[in-house]
Nucleic acid binder design. Structure first.
Length: 583
DNA sequence: GCCGTTTTCGGCCCGACTGTTTTCAGTCG
């Protein structure tokens, strides 16, 4: 549980060092922070078992950082960090989230204007004070204000992928309580929205045997408010408790009677817009719908199950991911809800980065992780040479990598494993729409992903043309993260998406649904457009570390929110059919 | 501060863009 916190502190140390212009150390601390964040095992466990030597085995952690981690585990803080923090007590995470603000800017803004947090920054920018700070100007001040506006638009919401692990842990703890008969997530988490306001749990207390339901309820509530990771208890009553987690989001738990469980689940799952229409439909039938049930006069005619609630309204049940009042209600009334893709429909992931381009894991490690996930194939698609920071592969290295992949595949064949590693790459679409790897090399790969990674601020027609040209390349099979958005941080590129869909259809180019928590690109709306336009998609993770392959759940959720069916997504297909989709 | 089939010392991935500047520093990917 401490990994995240240690990682955050190490990262902040790297920023403080960067501010002070210290060479090389910032990168060292940053690497260690990243490495610990990605760690599957608790550092505390490692330390208990192997002490300092164990810590030093973590990539990027040497003598000094191992000792700092030890200090944290023993005392709960790191003095080195506390000293920095005392000299410059700024809310680092908050300020760094502002696009265009980095450590040096934070340093100067604190030095000249004593800006400590986002609020201070906004006040100073609005008062026109920032333009007077040396090396800042009017334009920078305006950019800061725009960036703050952008942040505010997504304020108070958390990335689903970031908080899902915590939520799952809490869910699992509650589920095994003997006082809990039934439990479900509700709200935007159940709908798998990309960002989450707060988390809702619904629970039926157990009332069998000697335990009364009110006794169970009391125990459940006490257990809930004493969970680890809680920062503040907002309230605790007989039907509802509410807490604030350390990560900053709130969690509510509601205890509902068994006979109302379905209607409560329906009601608290939402969305609000979906529910408003449902209540109107109920009214039209002379019924009343609320969180306790569906009523005809005083008589309750449904409510124990969600399916039952929809049924008395003349509707088919539908997956929570569809409930946004985007046409699903009409389909449910007509009993024409599509059979959307399921969470275990995928047979492989075609976008994983290996240690060849600076990722963490070897191709073999990734392949083994893929097998554990039940995949039939895995696609290695490392960055190519234009992205030097990512140690992008050039033609020579791609050929060498091909040999390595062949070697691994023949091993699997010998072991009679029904599994195959595919070699792709994630090439760069350059400003003129060309791709940074020679055609004769691209042709030798199993498939080619191409993506935009530079000059993101192109004008709309130019950017659209650029991507179209890449799709027209006879070697480019997949466009990665097609709109380039970063949730809460950066808007999409300026593109004419309809035009892109047209050309994708014509050229048989596949668009990626990138599962990375802050990307989810294509998003739900674009997925639906692509599906309607007859464009095929692939759900990938873009994992740079094997634990990130689990992000696939988020991509599938997004596809479900976009009503994608199995046949819309190429990696639901076995390898033989999959390969047919590539040019 | 970390790391090692170019090294236990001496390296430490690069290029584009922006906004501030008169030649560059900070930020981003």
């Amino acid at each position: 549980m401490d990994n995240q916190e240690i990682s955050r502190i190490l990262y902040e140390i790297s920023l403080y060092l960067e501010m002070n212009g210290v060479p090389f150390k910032p990168v060292a601390y940053e690497k260690a922070a990243f490495s610990i964040e990605a760690l599957e095992e608790d550092v505390e466990e490692i330390y208990k078992r192997e002490q300092l030597d164990g810590l030093k085995k973590i990539p990027g952690v040497g003598e000094t950082i191992a000792r700092r981690i030890e200090e944290y585990l023993k005392t709960g803080k790191i003095q080195y960090y506390e000293n920095f923090k005392k000299k410059m007590p700024v809310a680092m995470g908050e300020l760094m989230a502002v696009e265009g603000i980095g450590p040096k800017a934070i340093r100067d803004l604190y030095r000249y204007l004593k800006i400590k947090n986002l609020k201070d920054l906004e006040v100073a920018a609005k008062a026109g004070k920032i333009r007077n700070v040396p090396n800042f100007g009017l334009k920078t001040e305006q950019n800061i204000l725009e960036a703050i506006e952008f942040l505010k638009r997504s304020k108070g919401r958390f990335l689903l992928g970031m908080i899902l692990p915590t939520i799952s842990t809490v869910y699992a703890r509650l589920k095994v309580l003997k006082e809990v008969e039934e439990i479900s997530l509700a709200g935007s988490v159940r709908r798998m929205k990309e960002t989450i306001g707060d988390v809702d749990f619904l629970v039926i207390p157990c009332s069998s045997g000697r335990i009364s339901s009110s006794e169970s309820t009391k125990k459940i509530m006490n257990f809930f408010v004493s969970l680890p990771g809680i920062e503040k208890i907002w309230g605790k009553g007989t039907t509802k408790a509410s807490v604030r987690m350390k990560e900053g989001f709130d969690m509510d738990i509601r205890v509902v009677p068994k006979k109302s469980y379905g209607s409560a689940l329906q009601y608290f799952t939402g969305s609000k817009e979906h529910n408003i229409v449902l209540r109107t439909i109920a009214m039209g039938k002379g019924l009343k719908l609320n969180e306790y049930g569906v009523f005809k006069g005083p008589k309750m005619i449904a409510g124990e199950t969600e399916t039952g609630v929809y049924k008395v309204l003349g509707m088919e049940w539908m997956p929570p991911e569809m409930r946004e009042n985007q046409g699903e209600i009409e389909l449910a009334l007509a009993h024409k809800i599509p059979k959307i893709i399921d969470y275990n429909d995928l047979k492989g992931d075609l976008h994983c980065h290996s240690d060849w381009d600076g990722g963490v894991n070897t191709i073999l490690e990734i392949a083994m992780a893929a097998q554990e996930m039940g995949y039939e194939y895995i696609g290695i698609s490392d960055h190519t040479k234009f992205l030097r920071i990512e140690r992008g592969l050039d033609e020579k290295k791609l050929i060498a990598q091909r040999k390595e992949v062949n070697k691994i595949n023949s091993q699997f064949e010998k072991q009679k494993k029904n599994f195959r590693v595919l070699q792709g790459c994630e090439a760069n679409i350059l400003a003129d729409g060309s791709v940074d790897i020679a055609d004769d090399i691209l042709r030798q790969l199993d498939y080619v992903i191409a993506g935009v990674h530079s000059q993101l601020k192109m004008e709309k027609t130019e950017m659209t043309e650029r991507i179209i040209k890449a799709m027209e390349n006879p070697n480019v099979d997949i466009i990665s993260h097609p709109t380039g958005r970063l949730i809460k941080r950066r808007d999409e590129y300026q593109i004419d998406f309809d035009k892109i869909l047209e050309v994708a259809k014509e050229t048989g180019t596949i668009l990626e649904v990138n599962s990375f928590p802050e990307r989810l690109d294509l998003n739900d709306k674009n997925i639906r457009k692509a599906k309607e336009g007859g464009v095929k998609m692939v759900i990938n993770t873009d994992a740079h570390e094997k634990s990130q392959m689990r992000f696939i759940e988020l991509g599938i959720a997004q596809a479900r929110r976009g009503w994608a069916e199995k046949e819309d997504i190429i990696n639901t297909q076995p390898i033989g059919k999959l390969l047919n989709f590539f040019k």
